[in-house]
């Protein structure tokens, strides 16, 4: 089951998170209720999950809703406002079973996103294979 979807058409940030979270559901990594929890975290605490302009890392707490570790990515057709005028066009969805098992993938994600040219490539690339290449070690299980 692919953990990457391009050209996702949504109007609001909850829809954007749902689209990314659904990839985790479809892949059998989380229960559907996990997606609602991802949205509830932002409703409660604000858009602190925006790592850098354009990119957000959505997730809820580990627990029974998480079946296996995974990181998915939904890239939106156009950016949506996550609040505080933080525009997001790429939504990563993280499912973590515990505190440690996903650390390498997150470290790699931070490295990838630290490079502006790579960020632009991720948002503009239309070829899923290219995006998977840029995000090797991040997307997946």
């Amino acid at each position: 089951m692919p953990l990457l979807r391009l050209g996702v058409s949504v109007e609001t940030w909850p829809e954007a998170i749902s689209a990314a979270g659904q990839l985790l559901v479809d892949g059998g990594h989380v229960q559907p209720a996990y997606v609602n929890e991802m949205i509830a975290v932002i409703e409660k605490l604000g858009p602190y999950i925006v790592l850098v302009e354009g990119f957000a890392l959505a997730h809820a707490a580990p627990g029974e809703q998480v079946l296996s570790n995974a990181i998915a990515l939904a890239i939106l057709e156009k950016p949506v406002d996550f609040g505080s005028q933080k525009l997001v066009q790429a939504v990563f969805a993280l499912a973590a079973k515990d505190h440690d098992s996903h650390l390498d993938a997150l470290a790699r994600l931070a490295e990838v996103l630290a490079d502006e040219q790579t960020r632009n490539s991720l948002l503009n690339e239309r070829d899923t294979a290219q995006i998977e290449l840029l995000l090797s070690g991040v997307l997946g299980e």
């Binding site: 602190y48 890392l57 997150l106 931070a110």
Partner: peptide, 15 residues
């Protein structure tokens, strides 16, 4: 510190 201690703050800690 982040909301839950599993995502954003882990990246911040690394950096």
């Amino acid at each position: 510190v982040c909301g839950l201690g599993y995502g954003t703050s882990v990246i911040l800690k690394n950096n």
